[in-house]
Design a protein around this nucleic acid. Structure first.
Lengths: 152, 152
DNA sequence: CCAATGAGTAGCAAATTGCAACCAAAATGA
DNA sequence: TCATTTTGGTTGCAATTTGCTACTCATTGG
């Protein structure tokens, strides 16, 4: 499978050398990651996404089109007539880690101690342990034990 | 350190029970995560952020105020006069994992094979290994070996 | 003293979002 | 069979958000 830059014709990057900025240019708007979250949770049809997110339909049309254009969703017309299915591509499925990181941060910092929230569990029904960035030798790292090399 | 819900008065959640949605409500706009990225990379003053991101100054004023309000940045007036320093709170520093996940996805999917980009390295100068969600026993998981429990 | 810098505001234009109404093809159901 | 609902949109318009340019006003630095 040949890898191409997913940038659509005419699009320009906010900060071309930064992978964080490119990711945000691709999926960093208010709705895209919620659409992707729902796709990971089984949504396929236009109306699935509409009902789960509550997004306006013209905006949903536009976001689905853009996510297809950018290689994150694949649009499949069901053999029987007119129903469209939007399914995650490999790149889309790979956003799993980003969604998990966002979910875990939200659990830690966006809920009061007693508030209920949905939980992501493995096949045994147990919650996933927390993601933890490590260095090349497996030791935990954080903001002040890492740095960004701005050249190559 | 008492934990409070960071929601400012009058704000309402897109999807109150979903930690992903709450995280996006707090930092999911076009600029906030780039501001946080720059804070992690040493930016402190208003103009640091303005030059690194290229954001409009009135929007930057607004985003910094919101991030302070939401407990992600702390605003410190330097003892000497007018200079303000914006530094990450503990919750802000904890977004490191989210930024790393976004960065690594971008590296994998938003660059053509030959394109150069900045790199995040540990104290030894080696690139961080890829984050990998696992189940409760340390086995790798992905979209189809996990599920979201929508109750509690 | 005078210029430059830091941290904003204010006013307005352009772009993006959201709402409500409309539409046509296909599936459903009485 | 034939009306109704569902699906996947489009269109027009209003409200909101963004970005640009020009202004402040208080320090610093020389």
């Amino acid at each position: 499978m040949a890898r191409t830059a997913p940038r659509a014709e005419g699009m320009s990057w906010t900060d071309p050398a930064c992978p964080v900025a490119r990711t945000l240019d691709l999926v960093g708007d208010r709705w895209s990651l919620l659409i992707i979250r729902d796709a990971m949770d089984g949504a396929r049809a236009f109306t699935d996404f509409q009902h789960r997110t509550g997004i306006a339909r013209n905006i949903l049309t536009d976001r689905l089109r853009r996510l297809v254009e950018r290689g994150i969703l694949d649009r499949q017309t069901a053999p029987t007539g007119r129903r469209q299915n939007y399914v995650l591509t490999e790149a889309g499925r790979d956003l799993f880690t980003v969604i998990v990181a966002a979910r875990q941060w939200g659990e830690r910092h966006a809920f009061a101690p007693a508030e209920a929230h949905s939980v992501l569990v493995d096949e045994g029904g147990l919650p996933l342990p927390e993601l933890r960035p490590t260095d090349a030798h497996g030791r935990p790292v954080d903001v002040d034990t890492t740095s960004v090399l701005h050249d190559r």
